[in-house]
């Protein structure tokens, strides 16, 4: 009994230690951005660049205020976020299903894997003219392009991970009566879960990449549009702001996905 109590106590202190370790890691991650900010401020103040080349951080803050006042900031962020979310959801779903089919079933692999590999070899921007031709210039082509971007990393990692599930564990699962869906959800997916989530995060990152490509080419809203528009109007402060926003949104989305994976890992 005392042994059990001591175990509980050490467990509690360990979780406390884990929390402070996480805070430490967070603080360590902020070091480089803060140094960059200081260097930026110093460079802008020393007059190495003209203000139109490198506006001070304060000027970027002022741009935030200006865009918020005009009600545009939220609009750009929201439309870009929506495109990434929809595109990622579509691309990742198709990637998961086709990756699972190719990874688990040899006949499907023989049928589909070579064609998908060939499609992946096409540089993504090569699809843009076709997408515009078929889907016009509204939301459709942008979401499809994001979906294409999100699809390939998810498909590749999921198919590889499911094809390489430890055959000993699969056999043990079969010996204990698991088949088909049961085998997939109890053995194969949990075994492949870390790789699947790595693939989802890669897909999300590539989704943002393709979003900017889509918005740079044909759009009147969104962060990619803000980038190209600010370049054309000589507003370097807004240009820097767009880049910072992309970094911030991308990192936030990735962190949310990471949280979700940790939650699901705890649930199995």
């Amino acid at each position: 009994m005392t042994g059990r109590a001591a175990l509980g106590a050490s467990g509690a202190s360990r979780s406390g230690g884990r929390r402070s370790a996480r805070l430490g890691r967070l603080a360590a991650g902020l070091v480089v951005p803060l140094i960059a900010l200081a260097a930026w401020q110093a460079a802008a103040g020393a007059g190495v660049f003209t203000p139109s080349q490198l506006p001070a951080p304060s000027a970027v803050l002022a741009a935030v205020a200006e865009l918020v006042r005009r009600g545009e900031l939220w609009q750009h962020v929201a439309i870009s976020g929506q495109r990434v979310l929809l595109g990622f959801a579509a691309g990742a779903s198709v990637g998961l299903v086709s990756g699972a089919a190719v990874g688990l079933y040899a006949p499907v692999r023989a049928l589909l894997a070579p064609s998908i590999a060939a499609l992946r070899a096409v540089p993504s921007l090569a699809w843009v003219p076709l997408l515009v031709l078929w889907l016009g210039i509204a939301e459709g082509p942008k979401i499809v392009l994001v979906a294409i971007g999100a699809f390939f990393p998810v498909y590749t990692t999921v198919s590889a991970a499911l094809a390489h599930v430890d055959p000993h564990l699969v056999e043990a699962g079969r010996a204990y009566g698991l088949r088909g869906l049961g085998l997939l959800t109890r053995i194969q997916l949990p075994y492949a879960a870390p790789a699947v989530f790595a693939g989802l995060r890669l897909g999300l990152a590539q989704g943002w990449l393709f979003l900017v490509a889509a918005e740079l080419i044909a759009s009147s809203m969104g962060l990619g549009f803000l980038l190209i528009d600010s370049q054309n109007t000589g507003r370097t402060d807004i240009l820097l702001l767009s880049i910072l926003l992309l970094a911030l949104l991308g990192k936030t989305a990735d962190a949310l996905l990471g949280l979700l994976s940790r939650f699901l890992a705890g649930a199995t």
């Binding site: 000993h168 079969r174 075994y191």
Partner: peptide, 19 residues
């Protein structure tokens, strides 16, 4: 096919590491 009247203990433990 798999026979549920039998139970196997393999040469290796073959436990699921996540459970």
């Amino acid at each position: 096919g798999i026979d549920d009247r039998c139970a196997v203990v393999f040469q290796e433990p073959r436990l699921l590491p996540w459970r």
